[in-house]
Design a binder for these strands. Sequence first.
RNA 1: GGUCCUGUGGCCGAGUGGCUAGGCCGAGCUCUGCAAAAGCUCUUACAGCGGUUCGAAUCCGCUCGGGACCUCCA
Length: 498
Amino acid sequence: MSSLKIYNSNSRKKELFTSLTPGYVGMYVCGPTVSGESHLGHARPYITFDVIFRYLKHLGYKVRYVRNITDAGHFEEEGREAEDKISKKAVIEKLEPMELVQKYTNLFHWAMEQFNTLRPTIEPTATGHIVEQIGMIEKLIGEGFAYEINGSVYFDVKKYAAQYDYGKLSGRVIDELLENTRELSGQEEKRNSADFALWKAAAPEHIMRWQSPWGVGFPGWHIECSAMATKYLGKQFDIHGGGMDLLFPHHESEIAQSTICNHETPVRYWIHNNMITIKGKKMGKSYNNVIPLTELFAGTHPLLEKAYHPMVVRFFILQTQYRSTLDFGNEALQAAEKGLKRLLEAYENFQKINGTNKVAQDEELNSKIIKLVGGLDDFMNDDFNTAKVLANLFEIVPVLNAIKDKTIAADALSIETFDLLKKKMKLFIEDILGLKNFTEANNKKLIGAMELLIEIRKEAKGKKDFFTSDKIRNQLNQLGIVLKDEKNGEMSWSIETT
RNA sequence: GGUCCUGUGGCCGAGUGGCUAGGCCGAGCUCUGCAAAAGCUCUUACAGCGGUUCGAAUCCGCUCGGGACCUCCA
């Protein structure tokens, strides 16, 4: 079998993955800013890294997956009146900042659960790590790479760039950054416009504020991730992930801070997921095209033709390689919904069938299946290519259905292949891709009632009483329950999604 | 303006220089009391121009289009 290769944003190449400590992986992913509701765009990194988390675990690593909650507001727009995002909205909504933060944290957790993502190992909050952040800033000042002025502290990018490669990760040229002479008010404190804030003095109206050696203020944009990653993963760790839009300045600055503070390059593999677009444009507040997750699931947003189940969204995202943009559209989502249903139905039905023969009667088919199954591991190892994994799974689906319908005899495959297939299908569909049945056909009482109806319908059909049998099927259909006659005389049913 | 990415069939998308992923839609067929599902088969493709090569969707150049970052942003 192949070994895991990861595309490292820092080297712009696929690299063979080895962990720093054999058997263990430390992974940090930039989490949500809980000053507002999460939208479809946010779903991508968390689902992407959930699959990466699951896959690393499958490979046998003990993974510490740290994903922060940014609950301390940053300033709205650098240079303008420094205004804490959270405090601003709190005033509008007449809420306590922490009440607001709690509300959106809860909502985020709810959405993540809908997506069937596993909980991170540690989910630290920025406000819970003010002490660590202050400690780090003090160190940076001590090292001579940060300076205090008027109660604010800035990182000296020019000095850093003279010794280190600032801009490597994001492909930025330092001289151009330093030349950037854009006139922005509030910048005059900085030695250079490329410098970034580590600590900002808080204006009196700021509600979120903490005491620090430099006066009352709040932490800068990037320091929280550096502080928490260092605390929980060490001075150097394996994987750091996030959206591509965080490449600069966020991750670039994280590297700078941590490098000076810890005297080590912090991250070995940088992984960045691409954006979700709508009509080719990134989903973002400034474009006015965000679809909040609650509205996506409920189908209430004007851009939506219908509601989309979280599992459909998850599948939709995994059908694309994580480094490509993914264009949202109703047609595409509906295609995903149908495809996922077909995949899961075939998968679930097949789990109930057993092989019969030791030796495969159809050697060609048997080896084709083994090859398709083997490809699954290779595709995951090739920079987590879930799109190709799904393609292979879909190539297997017709075979599974044909076996169920007995168009292909069960003994076409050997028992060994049967078991391999069952095991791997479960592994990839459920454990790694994290997909699961999303219809509501799991109520015991409903199942019992359906069994009764099916029995009555079978009797009616046996007597050629098609009036009754059609009545049962048609009425159920109106309720959104689809009854299907199987080839073997059995009947199956499923609940339509709305 | 600077840096970088990208342009694949009706839609979403994968793609290693040679072997036309996959999903959805469409057409036909089979099974079936009917229906649905399922299975089988088929159609539509690599933005344009030029170059490298025995051979390019895949490499290079140019043109045109789209996007991201440079400012909070997944």
